[in-house]
Design a binder for these strands. Structure first.
Lengths: 177, 177
DNA sequence: AACTGATTGTCTATGCTCTAACGATCTTTC
DNA sequence: GAAAGATCGTTAGAGCATAGACAATCAGTT
């Protein structure tokens, strides 16, 4: 009665079935586009989940926390709005994550700029030590992921993804890329 | 005093700066791995945010809601645990999203299986109409994204990503892929 | 100086995500 | 049969994400 899902169903099997089924319901399905987006999102989710569980949550923080700590490490110190732009996240989210990081003593918020609206985010001593240590493990895990590919494939993949990022969605684009 | 971020700083500029800076602090940085993971995650975030804002939130729901509706459309009806496996999300998250979808009259939860632990999720009439309509717009937007690439590049990219998904992280892998 | 408009960081409300724990139910073992 | 173990869906609690509204501040015009 109930259609049973083959127990270990791979992503590719699901893709195939989905394209088949959807093609019955609606014409002109862009199968290649569907596969591409599906796989990009799936890979990103897997990578984030993997690195978060293997590296960051073990160290007591999150992917989001690390991302903010990392850009702050790179630039020395930053204002929240810059963090927001650099890590592609809303100002509200930055504010929220900073609450956690500040509570845990990893960053401090200062009001020392001429422009009194601005907040300066700076790593504490502990924060700097932690993020440097975490980066090593993080980067090691990133490398583990790339071992699936040859050096050449790795470069190719990065190049293609950069190309998509630069162009964005190409048609009917009403709010810029 | 404060290091100022060049206002429209591209992802690539940030990558370059980050690699430079991090290489001063720690040896043996895997720059290619860093770039790859960074760009994959960035692209996925952009795609999800774009499609969510252009298609799904306009229709009154979320990416997560659509994903569940879609797999249910493909299979006719499903149990939450199968949805969980197919969409790579925890059972708890599925349960949470189903609450929203059920509240909005898009799906129903039934207890009609022999195994009385199981719940059967089925689309309502309205749900089926909605998800089919949303799929067309969703898939159109997916195609807009692929226009940045040639047909050949698109296939290449999908193939490389599938390869990474199948292999997973290759070393020090303690909990399976 | 006063008005207008834009920007910054934060707060609220809502939703998705996870882990960990729970009762209910099935399965296996004794 | 009864006890032990596994599985299913849900809940609780925490964190991150968004949009939208807000006070404070700055910049420009008049």
């Amino acid at each position: 009665m109930t259609k049973v899902v083959p127990d270990p169903m791979s992503g590719e099997e699901f893709e195939k079935l989905a394209i088949e089924r959807v093609s019955e319901l609606t014409p002109n399905v862009h199968a290649e586009a569907m596969s591409l987006v599906y796989n990009v999102v799936r890979l990103a989710n897997r990578m984030v989940a993997d690195i978060e569980s293997q590296v960051h949550s073990a160290a007591g923080w999150s992917w989001a926390g690390f991302r903010i700590m990392f850009v702050t490490l790179v630039f020395g110190e930053l204002e929240p709005r810059q963090i927001s732009i650099l890590s592609d996240v809303s100002r509200a989210s930055v504010s929220s994550v900073l609450n956690t990081l500040e509570r845990d003593g990893l960053v401090v918020r200062l009001r020392e700029s001429e422009d009194r609206r601005l907040v300066t985010v700076r790593l504490t001593e502990q924060g700097e030590q932690s993020v440097m240590k975490a980066f090593v493990a993080h980067n090691q895990r990133e490398r583990d992921w790339t071992l699936a590919l040859t050096q050449k494939e790795c470069t190719q993949l990065t190049t293609l993804i950069r190309k998509m990022l630069q162009s964005g969605p190409q048609a009917n684009d009403q709010n810029g890329q």
